[in-house]
């Protein structure tokens, strides 16, 4: 019981610290965001889709999306490796 409380408290402290470091006016300015500004201004012209998220996900960075689909596929294969119970057997308790 004490171990669970200690573990949860330490996780909360670590992630609160990390979140406060991240959100301390790092994401609040346009100072360093050249790539994002290019995507917003020229995304429609270069790809032809008004949805900038789709154009970034499927056109500028399509390779990462292929990687994510492979991760989904790997997860499905992995779950199949773990399939212990066949359709006809029923385990008792």
């Amino acid at each position: 019981m004490m171990k669970k409380i200690a573990f949860t408290l330490s996780l909360i402290v670590i992630f609160t610290f990390l979140f406060s470091v991240i959100s301390s006016d790092i994401f609040a300015s346009w100072k360093n965001k050249d790539v994002a500004r290019y995507y917003l201004e020229n995304g429609l012209k270069k790809t032809g889709s008004p949805n900038i998220v789709s154009s970034v996900v499927w056109d500028f960075r399509a390779f990462d999306t292929l990687g994510e689909e492979t991760v989904l596929f790997t997860a499905a294969v992995g779950i199949f490796t773990l399939m212990i119970f066949g359709p006809k057997k029923k385990k008792k308790a």
Partner: peptide, 16 residues
Amino acid sequence: FNMYVFFEIMSISSYA
């Protein structure tokens, strides 16, 4: 970020 995506492919297939 591409490195992270492939790191995830490697991790998940090794868990399996």
